[in-house]
Simulated assay, not measured.
Amino acid sequence: MTPSNVPQLLPLGSPAGTAATDQSRRTKVVPLRHAGRWVGGAIAFLLAAMTAREIISNPRFEWGVVGHYLAAGPIIRGLMTTLELTALAMLIGIVFGMVLAIMRLSENPVSRAIAWLYIGLFRGTPVLVQLIFWFNLSALFPHMAIGLPFGPPLLLVDVNALITPFAAAVLGLGLNEGAYMAEIVRSGILSVSPGQRQAAGALGLSRAQTMRRIVLPQAMRVIIPPTGNQVVGMLKMTSIVSVIAMSELLYSAQAIYTQTYETIPLLLVVSIWYLTVTSILTVGQSFIEKRYAHGSATPAPSSFSGRLRRNLISFRSVTP
């Protein structure tokens, strides 16, 4: 490159340099316009408004009947049963999932084989079949003997009295959930670097201490989001226990509309309660995710109010 081709830098004090600086100061940064995005949003809002108006104004929905049954005694009792089933089934699923995940990662081949068989069995058969199987367990084992192996039984339990519809629902949902939670917990444990376990062992920590104090707190960032999805899915999955005459939310609504023939209003009542509870669970999940996101390079999920405020600021910035 010859000296004549080298670009000349103008000093700031020169007239040309001052004019260039003033020109850059007068330049107004105009945000990029997204006309297609706003047009699409307007069309979606218009369609949503039209749908909402049609639903609200349609007398066949019988919103007065919906309001009457929304807090009715049978519906509330069914809702409480649904929440109880969800909590107990998820508790069993999480505990079994953690144990099975640790067994799958164990160096003992027997433990790995047992965990693999359990997960394959419960993930490979429909949960509805498992529910009906547990409900009819007394057909295979009328009595359950409790005592020493190969010794006389110390206690005989009537399985038909033990396996009530509620117990069958908890067992069917909880044991099935344990197979799915095992894979979620295993993925979270594997997301932690093996070097941290080796460093903990070098410091003298046992495997149990390493898992409890080092691995699991870091794995929770990976475990919590899919676990939250499983909780929401479990809440809705409890509706299938109506096949074993369990009086949960949907079964309670069915018992009413089979007598009154108000099918659509009762289904709307059930849907409103499911939407309410799932919304509360989603908010709780976001708080738990923020709690375990401290110290992580991945930003914590923002709240709904934060996203709304950010979108309003963005809207004002592009408004002329």
Rank of each mutant, 00 (worst) to 15 (best):
Q130S: 13
I146H: 02
L148I: 12
A167I: 15
L131P: 08
E177R: 06
I163D: 05
V157C: 07
L155K: 09
L173V: 08
P165I: 09
H143R: 13
I132T: 10
F135M: 11
V157A: 10
P149Y: 08
M181L: 11
Y180W: 04
A182Y: 00
G124Y: 03
Q130A: 14
G174C: 04
F135C: 09
V127Q: 13
L128Y: 11
P126T: 07
V159C: 06
I132H: 09
F150K: 03
A179R: 00
L140R: 05
L162Q: 03
T125L: 15
P153F: 09
M181W: 00
Q130F: 14
L140T: 09
A167L: 10
Q130R: 14
P165M: 09
F133A: 15
V129S: 15
V170Y: 02
L140P: 08
F135T: 03
L128I: 15
L156E: 08
P142A: 12
A168E: 02
T125R: 14
W134R: 07
A169T: 04
N176L: 02
L155I: 11
L128R: 11
G151A: 15
A168G: 07
I163S: 08
A182F: 02
T125M: 15
F135K: 12
V129N: 08
G178R: 05
F133D: 10
I132Q: 05
P142M: 06
L148R: 09
L156V: 05
A182G: 00
E177V: 03
P165F: 11
G178E: 03
